[in-house]
């Protein structure tokens, strides 16, 4: 299943890349959302691969987590990444909104003044 999920990750990145190359700010943001999903899913595949049905909880009996359980460190990293990217998403949403207000359009080609020579 890791293989299938790798392909899914690939499609997420492809979709994200395509959207981020568009002229609309909203599409850009949607692309960034897809990008973070792709990243999270990619991270998810690291470690020992994906494991069905064995979340990393400590087994009451033995006092340790079974070795076959999913990789906890991986998940912790992704969690941190999700929250951080959420912060960024919120910021970029506010920024895009304000930019749209200031420029009056959704088109990124209208936002080229700072580079104009």
């Amino acid at each position: 299943m890791t293989f299938v999920l790798s392909l899914v990750v690939g499609t997420l990145f492809a979709g994200a890349a395509y959207l981020m190359l568009r002229r609309s700010v909203v599409k850009l943001i949607l692309g960034m959302a897809l990008l973070s999903h792709g990243t999270n899913l990619l991270l998810f595949l690291m470690g020992d691969g994906v494991v069905k049905g064995m979340p990393p909880f400590v087994d009451e009996a033995t006092g340790v987590t079974p070795t076959a359980a999913a990789d906890p460190l991986n998940q912790a990293l992704i969690l941190t990444a999700i929250v951080i990217n959420f912060g960024f998403t919120a910021f970029i949403l506010a920024l895009a909104y304000r930019a749209n207000q200031a420029v009056g359009s959704d088109d990124l080609d209208d936002m080229v003044e700072t580079d104009r020579l």
Binding site: M20, V25, L28, M32, L35, S36, T39, L42, L43, M46, L77, A81, F88, F91, I92, L95, A96, R98, A99, A102, V103, L108, M111, V112, E113, T114
Partner: peptide
């Protein structure tokens, strides 16, 4: 100007960040 420039700053740096994250993973 800040908003226009800021948008490019944010997007391109976030791309870099995500590359970093992927790399770390």
């Amino acid at each position: 100007a800040q908003l226009e420039g800021g948008l490019k700053y944010v997007v391109l740096n976030l791309f870099g960040s995500l590359c970093f994250l992927v790399g770390a993973g």
